[in-house]
Design a binder for these strands. Structure first.
Lengths: 338, 338
DNA sequence: ATTGACAACCAAAACGTTTTGGGCTAGAAT
DNA sequence: ATTCTAGCCCAAAACGTTTTGGTTGTCAAT
């Protein structure tokens, strides 16, 4: 059995109270006693039982993160980097990170409820928002501290970090138009996702501004994976005339699209332009390197975690709602029209 | 404040004991009472406080996973898929997953100690083993349940799942030799990692069997990232005569190496052969698609989690030590010598 | 009438901590 | 001689559960 505070009390001849207070460095314990208690605790290899501490303190010092996994092939570099950002920040404040995997759907809210009401977490981080997000409705109603990566279409009265996808896509379209592209296609994300909305909005607006329109046949929806990008790109490449540029709404789909184009013998960046969004590490090392919009994923994870921790500590966060301005990263996958 | 069992007791006029036992479906509670208690619990929106349950039961129903993150750019598709495998399996048994991020080094063992002795987890999963792994030494000594992805050079008396990297690399070398390659280079993983050892062993053995030797100048060490693969490949490509094939010891480095080769105008699969290991989803969609060794990452996560859960439930796992036979996946990044 | 068996219930202890609300002693101030 | 203060200490309650070891009442068998 693990050594408890009681064991230390017995061994030092002090009371449980005194031991507890000595370890917590209260000043109604004499220096000598503190010294003694600490030495004995060390000798006996004492580690506080966090469960008991938490039960008593009514705070868990744990934040929850529920990852929207989709089936077995969930190799999204995006999430591992986000996780690193959140995890490292949480750890630096002594907080634990409870990660659940749960596909979006029926049981999802139940998972949130359980973590919250079961007192397993002090707060939650919500990622990949939907346009109308029941998770946020629930958390708001239940008065649970939370912070969000992304926005929703409903009242934005909660703390969030998001990147300005609309602006990012405007930059991208302007870039393509400057290169002479007119017949521009798009592989969109599933439309219920909020970031899909903003990115598409940016595309539509910028196209319109350039006197263009996104034609129906040039708009397809992909599932955000590389395979999905590949499949949807094939459909676009079958059209004639072929689009001269394909805007994929995330890097993974862009890489898939590049692969589809190259399979047909097209040289990406010359015969066809393909662009992404996110700037995952792979984008830089793709062949050709991918033109994309940068999103500081690690930093976003870190920021959103910081926000939540500030709320949990009772402060109002310095910045409650952050929208980051993205940067366009021009590489070789985009080129002038032939 | 959340609804507790006490509130239900008051409301139903029963004792705390009876309520607890009714909810747990003990048979010394009358059906009528059970019905009543359950109804009231439901009405009041009761969720058991897991902390209290755990403290009392002395099991946390939580397993720990400590991810070896290396700095901010941690976009490893490998780990997100492993995480999904572990997470989904844990969830299907009602277990929680406590994830910590902790770079290897000084503080690492302390993190393990804390989770274990603080009673935060019932068991741990160890990933990315080192040849001599202090984490395993510690867990073994501390008599903590754990399961491992990977092996070590020390006594293998613990439960693990691993892929036979030696065999996998033998398949790969044979494939290359069959294609006529003689001047074969290698981008090795950091040598303290156990999987590096096995993969390199496979390469050395198979080369020797083919009457070849891995020359010193053709052996470089990369950091497992795409950037690392790129940098090390540049060194190899500067040599003259150039190697006709480069075996990268993981897919990420292989992708980086491809990128380096392509930058020099080489056609991968014709002018130079480049291969990987892992078969991450991206490998299939690389251009050209990457010849690699398949590793069922999700399944491995799931298996190692299963093992741990079986141990925690007191059973001896059906298979305590599993070594999976890998399959060679030949795609277009490997070709016959020009 | 007593005994035994059974169904239904419950008080109290326990898990390991922190917090509350004190107590005791020695010395200083009145 | 009393009162006050400061310094150190501690018993007990509390957090929300589960488990232990009962008790009570009813009915059937003796």
């Amino acid at each position: 059995m693990a050594v408890t505070i009681k064991d230390i009390a017995r061994r030092t001849g002090k009371s449980i109270t005194t031991v507890s207070r000595a370890l917590a460095d209260y000043d109604d314990v004499s220096p000598a006693t503190k010294e003694l208690v600490r030495r004995v605790a060390d000798e006996m290899g004492y580690t506080p039982n966090r469960l008991a501490q938490r039960l008593q303190k009514r705070r868990t010092e744990t934040i929850g993160l529920i990852l929207p996994t989709f089936g077995p092939r969930f190799a999204d570099p995006f999430f591992s980097e986000l996780l690193a950002g959140i995890g490292n920040t949480a750890a630096s404040y002594g907080y634990d990170l409870l990660v659940s995997t749960q596909a979006p759907g029926e049981k999802e809210l139940e998972t949130y409820r359980q973590k919250v009401q079961g007192g397993q977490v002090d707060g939650l981080i919500v990622v990949r928002t939907r346009r109308h997000d029941k998770r946020i409705d629930y958390l708001r109603k239940a008065d649970v501290p939370f912070a969000v990566f992304g926005r929703t279409e409903d009242a934005l009265d909660y703390p969030f970090v998001d990147e300005d996808g609309e602006y990012g896509m405007q930059l991208m379209v302007e870039h393509l138009v400057d290169l002479g592209h007119r017949r521009i296609a798009c592989i969109a994300p599933p439309p219920h996702l909020m970031f899909a909305h903003y990115r598409m909005l940016g595309i539509h607006k910028a196209m319109e501004k350039a006197g263009l329109a996104l034609q129906d046949e040039l708009l397809v929806v992909g599932d955000l994976t590389q395979r999905g990008g590949y499949q949807q790109a094939e459909r676009l490449l079958d059209l004639s005339p072929r689009p001269s540029a394909i805007i994929a709404c995330n890097d993974l789909m862009a890489l898939g699209a590049m692969s589809a184009a190259q399979k047909r013998g097209l040289v990406v960046g010359r015969d066809i332009t393909i662009t992404g969004f996110d700037d995952i590490p792979m984008a830089e090392h793709a062949h050709p390197p991918l033109t994309t919009v940068h999103q500081p994923i690690y930093k976003i994870g870190s920021m959103v975690c910081d926000m939540l921790l500030q709320i949990l500590s009772g402060q109002e966060p310095e910045e409650r709602q952050v929208i980051l301005k993205p940067k366009l990263i021009v590489r070789q996958s985009s080129g002038a029209v032939a």
